[in-house]
Amino acid sequence: MRLCEVAELTQAEVLTGKELLDREVDKGCGADLLSDVLSVVEENFLLITGMVTPQAVRVAEVMNAAAVLIVRGKCPQDPVIAYADEAGIPLLATQKGMFETCGLLYSRGLRPTRFRRVSEYAG
């Protein structure tokens, strides 16, 4: 699925990265808890989050995510958008909630990312 299709499907506004909307994403990860994003073992996924803090974008950058889709109509502050722009991470924002957003994208074929298994952590 291309990012422009993600935007269309979720009626999302593109906050930055309009020129990158041809980018393909085939996996999605929904989370507000950023440590769960840090245990994804794949790249180029769509990060779906209700967080509009700078950390959401920085986590996406560190994990080589393809884009960030912000849910629930939240809009990050200008410095966060500017940072995403500079980091080359498209930022999209939808009015829809996390549940509906994940539901729509999943039903259109976006697949879940794989995570590091919790059992692997056993100290």
């Binding site: 509906e100 994940c102 039903s107 990312t113």
Partner: peptide
């Protein structure tokens, strides 16, 4: 399963 997968499957199930 993660949140995305659970939401996706429950959404499909309920709809």
């Amino acid at each position: 399963a993660g949140m995305f997968e659970l939401a996706g499957r429950l959404y499909t199930l309920l709809s």
